[in-house]
């Protein structure tokens, strides 16, 4: 092939690749623009002060927002210590053991496993045998989604901590729990925090696992043993409805959720950039 043809080919591929990157950026901008265009006009004070009401009653999303916060909060309280300890296990004690290898594999599967199946599992495990849909079940489903994210980032971040740091602590006669808690975790603090923030972002946007666990609730309820509202479920219910004011509220909720999730992502990346 002559040089001219090869160079032309090179230029064409470069142009196409640049265009593809442009397409990806355009898609992101398009989604964000749609959310702002449709969500912003509907984002009044009522969204934060009123609960979900029948169509035509100028309702809001207060119960859904609070329900989401409660369930995410509990999921994090359950999921963070388990994820942190399991991640530490993979990076420290279980690193080269058979259990460690299998747990690492299993965690990678859980990380990408369909989230709806987690919902179905919690339904079969907690909802069906224990008297129905509840905020607890929703929190449990979100916790299961949060754990693999924290495990993965914790392990990765602990692996970056120099072995000499641990050696120095052990040389001083510190027991392992002190070395891990006061040296290794502390050294990897920013990275571990990134994982926690990313997992909050993941839990905040998940809809499918809540369908069969906390179900959703159109009245005000903070009772964890009863069905509980959540923002994604409210959006799902409203977006598919034939009522214009409900659809508008769905867009307002969608804008809220996306902005929070994207902000969490960006903040966590800044954390990581500052750490490394």
């Amino acid at each position: 092939m002559s040089l001219a043809i090869r160079r032309t080919k090179d230029h064409v591929v470069k142009a196409v690749s640049t265009a593809f990157a442009g397409i990806a950026l355009f898609l992101l901008a398009w989604i964000l623009f749609t959310l702002v265009q449709k969500g912003l006009p509907a984002l009044g004070l009522n969204v934060f002060t009123k609960i979900t009401l029948p169509p035509g009653h100028n309702g809001g999303l207060l119960n859904a927002i609070v329900g989401s916060l409660i369930q995410i909060g509990i999921a994090m309280v359950i999921g963070t210590p388990i994820g942190l300890l399991a991640g530490t296990f993979l990076a420290e004690n279980g690193k080269t053991t058979k259990v460690g290898h299998i747990a690492r594999f299993v965690n990678d599967i859980l990380l990408s496993a369909p989230s709806i199946l987690v919902g179905l599992f919690v339904y079969a495990f907690l909802v069906n045998p224990f008297g129905g849909f509840s905020g607890w079940a929703g929190s449990a489903a979100l916790a299961i989604l949060v754990i693999p994210v924290i495990v993965r980032t914790t392990e990765d971040m602990l692996n970056l901590v120099p072995i000499g740091l641990r050696e120095a602590a052990y040389a001083l006669g510190a027991p392992q729990w002190k070395v891990v808690m006061m040296v290794t975790w502390r050294a990897a603090r920013a990275g571990i925090m990134t994982g926690v923030l990313l997992s909050i972002a993941r839990a905040a946007g998940e809809t499918a696992p809540l369908l069969f666990t906390s179900l959703g609730n159109n009245s005000w309820s903070t009772d964890l043993s009863a069905p509980m509202a959540s923002l994604p479920i409210a959006i799902y219910q409203y977006a598919g409805s034939p009522f214009d004011d409900w659809v508008a509220l769905a867009w307002a909720g969608a804008l809220l959720i996306t902005v929070s999730v994207l902000l969490l992502n960006i903040v966590s990346r800044l954390f990581l950039a500052r750490a490394g």
């Binding site: 300890l85 004690n93 259990v99 496993a113």
Partner: peptide
């Protein structure tokens, strides 16, 4: 320190194994 370490290491193993059991439970329940 020894006892604290036993508890701590036990927790680490427990949580590592919990992840394993979780996947097994999901498959079994479905």
């Amino acid at each position: 320190g020894r006892i604290a370490d036993l508890v701590f290491v036990g927790l680490l193993w427990g949580c590592g194994i919990f992840v394993l059991v979780l996947l097994g439970l999901i498959i079994a329940m479905l």
